[in-house]
Design a binder for these strands. Structure first.
Length: 293
DNA sequence: GATGAGCGG
């Protein structure tokens, strides 16, 4: 069975457009439509050519008087302007057919950063911009240690040691003693942050766990993240897999990283998979050095 | 032989 799925492709004929198209096909044989006026008396002439039913060319002249709008008094200058010949793109336009014209002028837009320019430089600029004072307040304030203008929360030297500083969104608002049930008026507290919620010791509520990072090298070109996950998952919960990709070509750079939730699992994976034959290559699996920023 | 992108209040 053949179906064209309702699309416009294929040989499906749209009859509604056919007639129009046929008429247009012959138009180029005819002299262009001429519009004269309106003159100061409001007389407008339209001279156009058409093919009649017998296929003969006929000239049609239409003379109309343009009605003046009530309450409209045209100045002498305005009346005079209407007698001017059309110019520019408007010569092809009927009188009053369009109040605005589409400009075909090329306008070049300036981009703050042209593609291919040095990303390093602009990043450095961006970071220093973040430290700039806006309305008297320093923008970059670390939410972990509270230091201003030095580093972002994610780059805090204490991010793995300290609990977030007071007064930031990581902690629920302090309950007021006089509120029933210790609730803060109007403040929603997610279940995970409510009093008495399970918070296993040693578990940090970080956005991302960069701990227990394992590097795997000597991957074949076509190893992707799902493949790595499949390979490493049996050792325990994996929080992240990453395969380095060449930004230009999109090809794998032949190495990747796996983050384990538990250090022991990572160690077992290293022990088992280092030297393991995978896709006819010998994998190298070891602890990853901390990322250099 | 090789050590990741991106995200900002």
């Amino acid at each position: 069975m053949v179906s064209n799925g309702g699309g416009n492709s294929g040989s499906k004929i749209r009859w509604g457009e056919l007639e129009e198209d046929d008429a247009e096909d012959l138009d180029f044989l005819l002299p262009p439509k001429q519009i004269i006026g309106p003159d100061e008396h409001g007389i407008k002439k339209i001279i156009e050519y058409k093919f009649n039913d017998d296929g003969n060319k006929v000239k049609i002249t239409t003379t109309t008087r343009v009605r003046k709008l009530a309450n409209t008094r045209l100045s002498k200058r305005a009346i005079e302007r209407r007698t001017w010949p059309k110019f520019g793109d408007a010569v092809h336009e009927d009188v009053g057919s369009r109040l605005t014209m589409v400009s075909t002028e090329e306008i070049l837009l300036e981009r703050p950063r042209a593609p291919g320019s040095k990303a390093e430089d602009s990043k450095a600029v961006g970071d220093s911009m973040a430290q700039l004072v806006k309305g008297g307040a320093v923008l970059m304030v670390c939410r972990t240690c509270g230091k201003k203008g030095d580093h972002w929360t994610s780059k805090c030297p204490f991010k793995d040691l300290a609990q977030p500083a007071e007064g930031f969104v990581d902690k629920p608002p302090v309950a007021e003693a006089n509120m029933p049930g210790g609730a803060v008026k109007g403040a929603y507290v997610p279940p995970s942050l409510r009093a008495g919620a399970e918070r296993p010791a040693g578990t940090e509520m970080r956005r991302r766990n960069e701990e227990n990072s394992v590097r795997v090298t000597n991957l074949s070109e076509d190893t992707r993240e799902p493949d790595l996950l499949e390979l490493f998952r049996p050792f325990g919960p994996v929080s992240r897999v990453y395969v380095a990709i060449d930004q230009k070509t999109g090809d794998s750079r032949g190495f990747g990283f796996i983050n384990f939730v538990n250090k022991e699992d990572a160690q077992r994976a290293i022990d088992k998979l280092n030297g393991y034959g995978y896709d006819n290559l010998i994998l190298r699996v070891e602890w990853a050095a901390p990322r250099t920023n």
